[in-house]
């Protein structure tokens, strides 16, 4: 990868030969994954399959021992830190909802709002009218207009999930990494979330990690099943869920 072409691939995200090991344990093993622009991809797999580690590699939290991670065909993510990657347009929702507990719902969104992230730019800052409008609309989308001044720490688990999705929206990323968005949600909420993700997917590329097969089915997108750090099967939900090996290691029967 010494001479990088201006554009190596047309893919939005391109992973090839990515390996990560922790003290001898191979969390990712020669993983290859290609996500096209505008695509939504669901990632499934048993615990320890490397789903979260893959997210960590893409967002710069973990450096791979080997392999390429290319964003938009030009940027090698393995050499960048988390902040730079986030500013390139990759947003992430964590498995465990992580919001800023001591900030109000509104402030959480303001922090996430797409804007200049540099320290000095934020010393003298007042919200502009378009920004406030954007906040209003997101609050409406996630149904939290009434709770806008509540401290995020006092929200319920499901509300935190929604808030985090709202923050992801405010960030306006090109690629969204969404880790288990419906854990702890009711069926109705799960359905709403699926709809919301589809809505988002009209403009943005999305990668969803999820255990809930009903939810994955509801999304109706291409599915990748990971096992022991590499891709076990890839295809439509019907293809993957009938794959013998997937049934054996993951779905069970």
């Amino acid at each position: 990868m010494s001479e990088m072409d201006p554009r190596l691939t047309t893919a939005q995200l391109y992973l090839n030969g990515v390996s990560v090991s922790f003290d001898g344990f191979k969390a990712l093993n020669n993983l290859a994954l290609t996500v096209e622009p505008g695509e939504m991809r669901a990632i499934i797999g048993p615990n320890g399959a490397g789903k979260t580690t893959m997210m960590d590699v893409i967002t710069g939290k973990t450096r791979p021992d080997d392999g390429d991670v290319i964003f938009e065909g030009t940027r090698d993510l393995t050499t960048l830190d988390e902040a730079t990657i986030a500013n390139l347009g990759i947003g992430r929702k964590f498995q465990k909802p992580t919001v800023f507990e001591m900030h109000s719902v509104e402030d959480n969104l303001i922090l996430a709002l797409k804007a200049d992230r540099r320290a000095f730019a934020n010393l003298r800052w007042s919200e502009t009218a378009p920004e406030m409008e954007r906040i209003e609309s997101i609050l409406k989308t996630i149904r939290m207009t009434a709770t806008r001044h509540r401290l995020a720490g006092s929200l319920s688990h499901g509300q935190k999930q929604w808030l985090e999705i709202g923050m992801l929206l405010a960030q306006e990323p090109k690629l969204l990494l969404v880790d288990e968005p419906v854990a702890g949600m009711t069926d109705a909420e799960t359905h709403q979330t699926a709809e919301l993700l589809k809505e988002i997917n009209r403009e943005k590329t999305v990668i969803v990690v999820e255990h809930d097969m009903t939810f994955v089915r509801a999304l109706g997108v291409k599915v990748t099943c990971l096992h022991e750090g590499s891709v076990l099967a890839e295809g439509s939900i019907d293809q993957v869920s009938t794959d013998e090996r997937v049934i054996e290691v993951y779905l069970g029967r």
Partner: peptide, 8 residues
């Protein structure tokens, strides 16, 4: 150092 996700 200990490595791994649990450390973080």
């Amino acid at each position: 150092a200990l490595k791994g996700r649990a450390v973080e």
